[in-house]
């Protein structure tokens, strides 16, 4: 168990070191997320006023889009330098590699969210920061669920043809529960009278989703990555 965690943390550190030196993924993903929010702003703001209840949806769509882009790029980089191959040859637990990659993606997406959430709050006059603890829990659980499924599929697709288009094609139908729960939970908190019980119910569902899909990913990572 200790070894497992050490390997996972080492892989995360490797990813973060590469990222800290180039900043390629962070800057491009961040700019992409901001542009996506702006495009939505032009679509959903009429006569200078944002359409009601649009903020929750826009926030989660921006996260899902940016997440897909980040996942695709992370593994493209691995493929280009044949890193994943080398990692799979290393005498370590395969699931530890998965957890390491997942942690790296989570740090990246978390950073993107730190910028995107206040931006959505600002542009759509949404009281996103009124219940900071619940919003952060919702975002954390939702992002973990999305990234858990995304990391597995992005890793799998590294060997496939037309992986750029196949990643969203596979990922979006599979992560619909995360999007529904995230949007509904956030919308419950954005109401004039925040519906705490509803938000808690969605957080619970997201937690359950995370547990099931991380377990399933750890379980399937080994057989799908073996050629």
């Amino acid at each position: 168990m200790k070894r497992f965690l050490r390997v996972a943390l080492l892989i995360m550190r490797k990813d973060l070191t590469v990222e800290a030196r180039s900043r390629e993924l962070l800057l491009t993903t961040l700019f992409f997320a901001v542009s996506a929010v702006l495009v939505f702003a032009f679509g959903f703001v009429r006569d200078g006023r944002p359409v009601e209840n649009a903020a929750a949806g826009i926030l989660w769509i921006a996260i899902a889009f940016a997440g897909t882009l980040a996942l695709g790029r992370t593994f493209e980089r691995e493929r280009y330098h044949d890193v994943l191959h080398a990692l799979l040859l290393a005498p370590v637990d395969r699931p530890a590699i998965y957890v390491g990659k997942l942690l790296g993606i989570l740090v990246l997406l978390g950073t993107v969210e730190i910028v995107v959430v206040p931006l959505v709050a600002l542009l759509f006059q949404a009281p996103l920061l009124r219940q900071p603890l619940l919003i952060v829990t919702l975002l954390a659980f939702g992002t973990v669920g999305f990234a858990a499924v995304g990391t597995l599929f992005a890793a799998m697709l590294i060997r496939a043809r037309s992986r750029d288009v196949l990643l969203p094609v596979l990922l979006y139908p599979l992560t619909i529960p995360v999007i529904i729960a995230g949007v509904r939970g956030t919308a419950a908190l954005l109401q004039p009278e925040a519906d705490i019980a509803m938000a808690r119910a969605w957080i619970g569902m997201l937690g359950f989703f995370d547990v099931v899909f991380i377990t399933l990913s750890l379980w399937t990572f080994e057989p799908v990555m073996t050629e």
């Binding site: 599979l174 619909i176 399933l216």
Partner: peptide, 30 residues
């Protein structure tokens, strides 16, 4: 995925089918 994923996509597709099955109760619940 099977059609355009190229060689080796059967295994990936099997993963999709498995995750798809696990997804049903969540979509229904949500």
């Amino acid at each position: 995925l099977r059609e355009y994923g190229g060689p080796g996509s059967e295994k990936l597709a099997a993963g999709v089918a498995l995750f798809g099955m696990a997804n049903v109760p969540f979509v229904y619940w949500s």
